[in-house]
Design a protein around this nucleic acid. Sequence first.
DNA 1: CTGGATCCGATTTGATACTG
DNA 2: CAGTATCAAATCGGATCCAG
Lengths: 124, 124
Amino acid sequence: MPDFLYNSKVYYNPVEFAMDRIGGTWKMPILWRLKDKVLRYGEIKRDIPHITHKMLTSQLRELEAEGFVNRVVYPVVPPKVEYTITARGKKAITIIEIIRNYGLDLMKDFEVPSEKIKTQKKLK
Amino acid sequence: MPDFLYNSKVYYNPVEFAMDRIGGTWKMPILWRLKDKVLRYGEIKRDIPHITHKMLTSQLRELEAEGFVNRVVYPVVPPKVEYTITARGKKAITIIEIIRNYGLDLMKDFEVPSEKIKTQKKLK
DNA sequence: CTGGATCCGATTTGATACTG
DNA sequence: CAGTATCAAATCGGATCCAG
């Protein structure tokens, strides 16, 4: 089992390494949306209704730092920032598509009712 | 974006659903080891040195509950328990293999030094 | 509009002890 | 040998506030 280091973190296998780059709840959904279009921060935010401000910014920062997306700032007021996918990000899209299809398979397999449900606000 | 429910949890896309079944730090490494052989609890444990007892049991329980592995108990003392992969688990293997190869690609891309490193015990 | 920082609760995980 | 239970530590994520 090949242990290795990246950014001061120990990894035990390539799967773990890959999942740390594009895994988690939000990175794939974000990349997926940038697949074939340029989006502004607010557009991504609106497109993924359940993501919080904090998560969206932090995940975008990481994706940018690791070269999956580009961040283009227009020096205007109010600020305008566009996100585009990189070549590295496009490679990830291939994998995301495969996982996505696998997920759909699994859902059939598990007989998940895929009808849209009404989510209700969390009770305080 | 299709929201749906499974086991009282809300999912927002098929990727998230798939990753909840076979994602996390340990499930793929566990499945990977059962790919083509039957293993006892202790053998898996020894094969994945960094996993804790608690994580291995909990992850095995989940994989079993969702039909990715079978758990076979031999009523002997001391106890003997074998884990085998199911058809559903084998399907997952194809995906894991793809992610694994992608991870290897990424590592080259990031120029990760893949030489084995000595991990040192955490200081108390 | 975009984004950083802070506080704080929830969830996850590790260490340890105990059992048949 | 395999597994459960418990407690503490660490991590993660949401809500909120401030700023250019």
